[in-house]
Write a protein that binds this DNA or RNA. Structure first.
Length: 153
DNA sequence: GCCAACGTTGGC
DNA sequence: GCCAACGTTGGC
């Protein structure tokens, strides 16, 4: 059964519009350096799963679009590149520490569903995103929450 | 294994 | 820019 996710990106680094502008509309979700987030990408995501694209650390944090998981997990090449800002010398190409999946643009939402708005809905109170101190950049979303949020659009 | 110091995330 | 929350590191 397909699962649902939420993936954060700083729009100043990589936005939903950047993804849409790619010729393939597909991009490797690189640079994740958190073990929980890695484990979800590596062990639980499947091609065809859908995810909310979330803009963080910006003027209006919130859900801006939908993407589809477009590959199995594979080693994050940026971890091996000393020139890359996400370089991790402890990730051995023969025993990679960091993984990623490709994501493909599906659509932008008609409007941004802001973090503040999400917090206002009791039905969403136990979303991982809304938990105190949550810092995960990749997290699961229940089917109930997924459908509820789409209903807000 | 404990825990203080440090770095990062991300909302505000 | 501030700062709360949390993960990681490393000395012991």
């Amino acid at each position: 059964m397909a699962n649902y996710w939420l993936m954060k990106s700083e729009p100043g680094e990589f936005s939903i519009d950047d993804l849409r502008a790619r010729r393939s509309r597909t991009e490797p979700w690189d640079g994740v350096r958190n073990y929980q987030a890695r484990n979800m990408m590596r062990d639980e995501m499947r091609p065809g799963d859908q995810a909310f694209f979330y803009h963080s650390a910006c003027e209006e944090p919130g859900i801006v679009g939908i993407v589809k998981i477009a590959s199995e997990a594979y080693p994050d090449p940026t971890a091996f590149d000393p020139q890359d800002k996400h370089y991790d010398p402890k990730s051995d190409p023969d025993d990679p520490r960091w993984f990623l999946v490709d994501v493909k643009f599906v659509r932008k939402l008609g409007r941004t569903i802001g973090l503040r708005e999400l917090r206002g809905h009791d039905a969403l109170a136990d979303m991982v995103l809304l938990r105190r101190g949550n810092r995960l950049s990749v997290m699961p979303v229940s089917a109930e929450h997924w459908n509820y949020i789409l209903g807000l659009e």
